[in-house]
Amino acid sequence: MAAVKLVSRRCMIGSIRKGLANAIQNNTANILHHFEWKNTNAVLTTKSQIYRCLSTISAERPVVRTTIDEEELRKFVLLSQQWWDEQGEFEALHALNRLRIPFVRDGLLNQRGIPPLDITQPLAGFSVLDVGSGGGLLAEPLARLGAHVVGIDAVGENIKIAHIHLQQDTMIAGKVKYIEATAEDMVVTEEEKFDAVVVSEVAEHVTDLSHFIESCCRLVKPGGSIFITTLNKTQAAYFLGVLMAERVLHLVPAGTHDWNKFIPPVDLQYLLDKNGFVTRLVHGMFYNFLGKKWSWIQNTSINYAVHAVKIDSTKSQTSERKFKNDSIST
């Protein structure tokens, strides 16, 4: 019985993959990967650690053993450790979790209106798509809160890395799926399937923003939410987000960000509005690189977060207008 379930799940993923393979061929738009990948400072790990990971993988998914060779696995284990090193290259992203997880959690809970049945699983019943999932930094915490998470990333390496790390925690391993795909790919099969789509620190890397946002918006169920965190197109953002962060303080690898792709909040709101979304919240974020901590601020001129809700056309016109009025005050 249990084995049958496992097989059916694999088939499902397999069919999604097939659909995606077709889709990828026609699709020109592509999400760029979060950060340029650097493997220069790979750190040696002990043999036992690799064997441990090897044994975990083979125990969890017996079929995988034949497709990943040992040398490759060693590489991914190392990369996974880099992604998940809280004081390493992705320190700022790890720290951002303390803002963005509560942001998504409270946004979804407020949207639903009723308190969760089980406080330990506040997001139970929500399906969330994490666009640009990277190492799974956002997907895993959301799954711990009870959500079913699909993480997509255009970079196949990231999918493997995220999967390796996910296997560590058996409590959430069944709640997260990682798929190598772009948001545009997903639209083919998964339109209006998700309660929430999270686009965190991704939008500023995209070449065709309008098309990208449209795809993300189409994936959201009517009444569902989209959460976006990104960088504003201001001089302050250039100074702190590019010059200081990349060149002076080396918080992120050089070349991570291209100021020309940064997005003013108004433009983002316009795009969301065009796709049938009502913006509920726009809030500034500030990274204190000395204390390594993010905090919410009023000013949106550097980093900011947006929460928008898809208008549910099945609901009556009046309630919608009332809803719109509510959102203006925030």
Partner: peptide
């Protein structure tokens, strides 16, 4: 940490 979905051992 738990309410924020964090790993219990998270240094942050």
């Amino acid at each position: 940490a738990v309410y924020d979905g964090s790993d219990l051992g998270s240094l942050s």
